[in-house]
Amino acid sequence: MNKASSKSKGVVIEPQETRSSEASGDLLRLLVENIKEYAITILDPEGMVTSWSPSAEKIKGYKADEIVGKHFSAFHTPEDVASGKPERELAAAAKDGRYEDETWRVRKDGTRFWANVILTALRDKKGNLLGYGKVTRDLTERKRAEEQIRQQSREILEMATVPVVQVWEGIVLVPLIGVLDSERSQQLMEKLLERITATSSPVALVDITGVPTIDTKTAQHLVETIKAVRFVGADVVLTGVRPAIAQTLVHLGIDLSNVTTRSSLAAGLRVAFGMLHLCVSAESAD
């Protein structure tokens, strides 16, 4: 009854029977030979390769007869070999019983892969060091995916902080949303100047519709940004100046007398077109 239900689940290992330990040893060997994701290698106490699995061949490119008897530093980068890292890894594994690392390793063809490496010291019952078991996993794909995600999130964050877009030839627009702190103001200034010079745009629209409140510091940052834009040879049109913002600016005594300001982005865009001597006309109805 019990046996039948176990059978339906697949492999049955019966620890009581003497043959089963041999059978499980065989299975273990089958596992080592068939597992694809992990390169399993045995090293002698000096770090020479003594046993090589098919997965190791697949991941690292060496056939068993090419690598058995060679030192495992063949898998390390030249920089690591020069700094004595292979020896340090063995020493660490011998001392602590185990050593784990995520690092660049080298295939037979010289290409590099990002590897998770676990070295385990193998000792007999008296504690004599017989060698090391080495399990290597190729994590290049995962690392690449992680880096891609990191890169994307960095770009999204930067874009969301100060998005500078070219809306017309000669006009760049920054729609600012949220509180403008010192760090963001600095980013705004740098990115805006960089875009103005890169696109050779004489007009920059800075839209503050989405900025909830303005204090003296924020206003000062804006004034500085506008000044810097002037220095590189362009002009700022400040748009989205809502009634509350207009009141605040006057009460704070911020002098924007030589800055063109408009309440809406649409009005600002019209001013920008005017500065570039462009005119917008409706298409005739016929």
């Binding site: 050779s200 834009v229 040879g233």
Partner: peptide, 25 residues
């Protein structure tokens, strides 16, 4: 043709544009 980095320094140094115009190039 003032460069962005120089423009940022210029704001800190208080370069005055009262009698000066600027151009991209």
């Amino acid at each position: 043709g003032m460069r962005p980095a120089v423009a940022i320094t210029a704001t800190q140094l208080g370069l005055n544009l009262a009698f000066i115009r600027t151009a991209l190039g």
